[in-house]
Design a protein around this nucleic acid. Structure first.
Lengths: 341, 341
DNA sequence: AGTAAGCCATGAAACGTTTCGATAAAGCCA
DNA sequence: TGGCTTTATCGAAACGTTTCATGGCTTACT
């Protein structure tokens, strides 16, 4: 097996060439005081000439601090093709750039018994963003471990356990309100709802919001108006026929995710139903695809990129500020009026 | 600034508890020979009890080999929302999992004068996947550096310099052929072409293929039938009016990327042109969005996920096999018939 | 001129591993 | 049983950094 062969230039090489101790070079490279300006200048010049680059791995070994943000995502073979996550990651990526950190991706293989903390230790990561949508597994122990060892972390999408942790989520009640108000303004009183993954944080919250608000706003109350999906395209396609088959059909359908809405759209088109003429359709998320479907999907925008960014911000703050209290950031959603309503 | 506070268990802790030298524990953890079965067993048990996890950073410091695949992508603020790249990354991710490597993302800030090699050194990365679509900058020096230092790397999307390097690309000539044959079979003889980014590898290659084949296949030859975009949505939207404004309009339009095709689609719809009735439209790539637009876009599929995977495979092989010759893999594209033709 | 106070620069120790030469123990053969 | 080989374990050195206590040299003040 090959190795790096041409020796690479280290701090010692620079020191030797400059005729100083390597610790001095270190001080210079880290912009610390107690080095005379002229010497600093000279060392900088030499380092530059020799193409010196600090070895971040060695650095983090000793400082026990990495320059890496670990992004842990659910174990989904095609995670990267789900644009919902992508937009979050896009935000994380911007933040990493801002803080001059590198980004490392992990899908936790829990079958191997790896815990979040072990992961952080293995890679000397002191900053973790946990992108989670499934709380089937209890994370209390993981969270305790992370806290005990001073690893900073934030959840993207609300953490639903009772511990106080950093998390960034969207105001689902407000989102559902925006959606329903829009539909009501267009005269709809009978609205079907396709609910999301019951093991997620957002799924039950949106369902709950729908139930509460639809009562409060005087919409038709009817068990059959709620069907249960899991946020995926397929579940939307699968569940919408139940709504269409009701004796009294809803005049509008609100899906708790864009993917489900798009799935529903396909199923409805297949039945020759015209959107929005026959039935209005509304999504939630503003996934990339929602703008491209026909008719373009009216939806509730979550500021996903911003959420990713803020998650990093929170984690950084809890690492740097001595008494930072774990914070939950609830972002405001926004109604995107397009053609499907 | 906080640090990891609860001491984490190291190889030495395990050694002490087991009453052996830490080097022995190291042998056990790495499954090396020369340790008696019973001792090995005992150490393994203790390590497990104590929750020992190797510190990969320390490991790579000494072995000078990282367990990380560095993915370098173009400096694009919203890289992660471009599904084209995403699918490639999805493939890389699968491969990483296969080889038990972590994935690290970089967008090279060349303004800071960072070179690919320096990047690899900084992070002790010995495996790099370069996802590149813009050869405005000459990469010869970078490549030489990487080679000199024994860093393995592959390009995704052809490398257009003269050095022999690992690269994975698609057979553009074949892709264009498939597209044109399909259009011709439907009776089209006057086909407009929206070309892609001239600084990429694929852009000129597809243009060239179009020019050659359209002549060979007896299509209308007319300067005005070719317009020049840069692969983006906006450029498609911007350029297609030039085709529509020709005295003799094309009956079909072939865009060198799906994004451009979708942009063109929007512009055409705005003019009340019906697709495919008035004009047929064809894309290239099979981006995620192409299946969702209306009408769904007929396109040439590049096996992007597979390409990402193969890129990692190649890099791994050139790291492990003593005399591995840099290889270019040319993947077969595929015609996806949908509704736009 | 003598001394206290800064400032610069240094060398050694440490971080958690792997590697390698040395040593001790065990096994083998005659 | 003596000598030789093999195997099991150990200890020290190394990887490229940062950190920190130490001390020499200036400078400034009395």
């Amino acid at each position: 097996m090959k190795r790096f062969d041409k020796a690479s230039v280290t701090i010692k090489d620079v020191a030797k060439r400059a005729g100083v101790a390597h610790s001095t070079v270190s001080l210079v490279m880290n912009d610390r005081e107690h080095v005379s300006p002229k010497l600093r200048e000279r060392i900088l010049k030499i380092a530059n000439e020799m193409g010196y680059m600090p070895n971040i791995v060695a650095r983090s070994l000793i400082s026990k601090k990495s320059a890496t943000v670990g992004v842990v995502f659910p174990e989904n073979p095609h995670f990267f093709t789900m644009t919902y996550f992508l937009m979050v990651i896009d935000g994380i990526q911007s933040a990493c750039k801002k803080y001059d950190k590198a980004m490392m991706f992990f899908s936790l293989d829990q079958t191997k018994g790896e815990s979040y903390y072990q992961l952080s230790r293995k890679w000397l990561i002191d900053l973790m963003i946990i992108v989670n949508i499934d709380y089937t597994r209890d994370l209390s122990k993981d969270i305790q471990d992370l806290k005990d060892h001073g690893i900073a972390f934030s959840f993207v999408t609300k953490y639903i356990g009772k511990e106080k942790v950093n998390s960034v989520c969207v105001d689902n009640l407000e989102g559902v309100r925006l959606a329903l108000e829009h539909l009501i303004a267009q005269g709809h009183r009978r609205i079907g709802f396709i609910s999301g993954n019951p093991n997620s944080a957002d799924g039950p919250e949106r369902l709950n919001a729908f139930q509460t608000l639809s009562k409060k706003m005087g919409l038709d109350q009817d068990e059959g108006l709620i069907v249960y999906g899991d946020f995926t395209f397929e579940s939307g396609e699968r569940e919408v026929p139940k709504l269409l088959g009701l004796k009294k059909r809803p005049t509008a359908i609100f899906a708790a995710s864009d993917y489900m809405a798009i799935g529903a759209m396909r199923a409805m088109k297949a039945q020759g139903i015209s959107i929005p003429k026959d039935i209005a359709l509304m999504g939630f998320d503003n996934s990339l695809e929602s703008a491209y479907v026909e008719p373009a999907l009216t939806t509730i925008r979550q500021p996903l990129q911003e959420m990713g960014e803020k998650a990093v911000d929170l984690a950084i703050r809890s690492l740097n500020e001595e008494n930072f209290e774990p914070t939950t950031l609830i972002m405001k959603p926004e109604l995107l009026k397009r053609q499907s309503c």
